[in-house]
Design a binder for these strands. Structure first.
Lengths: 288, 288
DNA sequence: ACTTAAATGTGGGAGTTGCAACATTTACGT
DNA sequence: ACGTAAATGTTGCAACTCCCACATTTAAGT
């Protein structure tokens, strides 16, 4: 009976493993046999349908020992393809957010504090634009908790799903080409769509901020951020202190275009000087 | 120290619990005190950021016993707001898909077989439209496994995320108002956007099919399905046998407009007669 | 203030999982 | 066909989780 089950999966699984091996640039994975790859593809795919799988259940389904499954998800976890958890594995949320296992409790509350600082800038009834990123996800979560009536336009699937669960929030999702690593849509369709909306405020993340302004690493995100900036009466960048002084490929906004910088710590003196000279507002805990 | 942590959460959590209680129509939840509701909101929201939380970790964070957390997630699980798992809880995937715990192993393979039957209708290089639903999610999963080069336009966030993980698939997401219970976008913006594409084939789910044609329960989905049908050279409905004979509010397609019905079992004689008289093609295991 | 019920804590036994060392099987190259 | 190494299975023990019943605390109503 297990044999039958196994064969079915064997025919079903084709070769996503190839992509996976390719992505890992032939390190230790090239040595692995088919059976293993198939199983791992199955695990990964199952994890896209259900957010969590259990070791014991997978073992039963594939007709192998729990130890084998354990080794599989250990390796997959090491490769960053899923998150290990007691008794099983869970899908790694796309969009940059790391599970709590990797973060200390302090960082969790830091994240929430920064997010609430940004939520304080939102007024009841506001229309918003929110872009993709781990900071804006945390912002969306805090905004959902605040139970404010807002309408949000976003290109982030995560933000849509998080904020969409709040009873008084309306979410409009922009169209575009789907980027799986960021769980967001991107492209000219996205930008064109955004131009059709005028909102009270936008809340954006970014990869870096320096004296020359805000910059972004992911190609294609910069254009979206700029489009959102252009349609918003009030502009906000939510950036934790680790972004200070970092410069990335794509230019997003000059210091004068930043509006308000929401952060979890005061900017470095030179950054503070440059931003304040350009008329940017800065907001951070302990007196901003 | 725990006191501090707890207070922070106390201020953060406002009143999504109200919505939750409201949704449950004041059964046993009305009796519950604030503390409990806050904790549960936190759990639910945390689950939107991370796909899995552990009992022990939550207990530590809230400064309560694991037993309390266990009771929380038990109740939340009973209310259908999350999925229980050994050692913790995982987010319930929106869009109708139920975790494996609730389904027998047979139904899992049935689901996969139906999905693969539909995938067999896809040709390398095809452009597709795929709508939202649990059947189309399974289809997207099987399509991702097939490793075919396809371009898919969809209004389902789940389909986008599943298919978007396949290396050779391109996914275009339609815009629109976000419907959280279905994890899909909906509305005139969605329909208008779809009209901008011509595709080789569409794969749609639906709530029911009868002699009068295909019908749908979710308001607003019918228009999207019709738009997708209109833009597709080949038309497919993926429906399991439980949909046979069911009639729902919104009309989607007459028998003559169905194209191909992909199912896991042969339609009932009268349904078969009506469809075949209208020129619909039928596809099911064991000789279609 | 008193009563009552809900909410939470405690403790122990049963079941699950994790881990590591070692045995066995399987797959591949020569 | 043989040898080798990867892959998987097996076993035992420690750690963790679950669940039950009962004790204790907390919150609400009168």
């Amino acid at each position: 009976m297990w044999e039958l089950q196994h064969l079915r999966y064997k025919t079903l699984a084709l070769s996503i493993s190839d992509c996976f091996r390719g992505a890992r640039a032939m390190t230790e994975d090239t040595k692995r046999r088919l059976r293993k790859g198939e199983r791992r593809d199955q695990i990964l795919l199952e994890l896209r349908l259900a957010p969590h799988v259990r070791v014991a259940e997978l073992a039963g389904r594939f007709g192998v020992t729990t130890e084998t499954i354990r080794r599989d998800i250990d390796d997959l976890g090491r490769a960053g393809l899923l998150d290990r958890s007691y008794g099983g594995a869970s899908a790694r949320a796309p969009g940059g957010y790391r599970g709590l296992d990797e973060r200390s409790r302090e960082r969790v509350s830091e994240r929430d504090r920064l997010a609430r600082l940004a939520v304080a800038e939102v007024r009841e009834g506001d229309s918003l634009m929110i872009d993709a990123g781990s900071t804006t996800m945390a912002f969306a979560r805090a905004l959902a908790l605040s139970d404010m009536a807002v309408t949000a336009v976003t290109n982030s699937l995560q933000v849509a799903m998080i904020l969409g669960s709040a009873p008084r929030a309306r979410v409009v999702l922009a169209p575009g080409g789907y980027r799986h690593d960021e769980a967001a849509v991107i492209g000219t369709a996205t930008v064109d769509f955004l131009r059709g909306y005028h909102v009270d405020a936008c809340f954006l993340g970014a990869a870096g901020i320096g004296v020359q302004g805000v910059s972004e690493a992911v190609e294609g995100f910069a254009a979206i951020k700029q489009a959102m900036l252009a349609q918003s009466a009030r502009r906000h960048f939510i950036l934790d202190a680790s972004k200070f002084g970092r410069v990335h490929l794509s230019h997003v906004a000059a210091p004068g275009e930043i509006g308000t910088l929401v952060s979890d710590a005061a900017p470095t003196p030179d950054l503070h000087a440059a931003l304040s000279a350009a008329g940017a507002r800065m907001l951070y805990p302990d007196g901003g």
